[in-house]
């Protein structure tokens, strides 16, 4: 590694990480709005007093993706941050 290269890598990692966190936040917000949206639109499968169905699961897809993104973002941050570390 050349002198001065590491800070550039660090900054790039920082940008990737921040972007991922923002994406996660947006997705989670969307997910949290899912059930509320269901109430407003009076989806039969939700407020009609029925059991959960296809649409209810569809509304929760963003939440599942958000959770996956959050885990991937944390994994990526830690791995990229320490990938150059020496084995103990």
């Amino acid at each position: 590694m050349q002198d001065g290269e590491y800070p550039v890598v660090e900054r790039r990692i920082g940008r990737i990480y921040l972007s991922a966190v923002i994406a996660v936040a947006l997705v989670l917000l969307l997910a949290a709005g899912g059930p509320a949206l269901a109430q407003e639109t009076q989806t039969p499968q939700t407020l009609g007093g029925g059991e959960i169905g296809y649409l209810d699961w569809l509304y929760h897809l963003p939440l599942a993706l958000g959770c996956a993104l959050l885990v991937v973002a944390v994994d990526a941050f830690v791995i990229l941050r320490y990938i150059r570390g020496k084995e103990a």
Binding site: V74, D75, V78, I79, Y82, I83, G85, E87, A88
Partner: peptide, 9 residues
């Protein structure tokens, strides 16, 4: 994840 930072190989 933390252990990976100590034993990455």
């Amino acid at each position: 994840l933390w252990l990976l930072t100590k034993f990455p190989r």
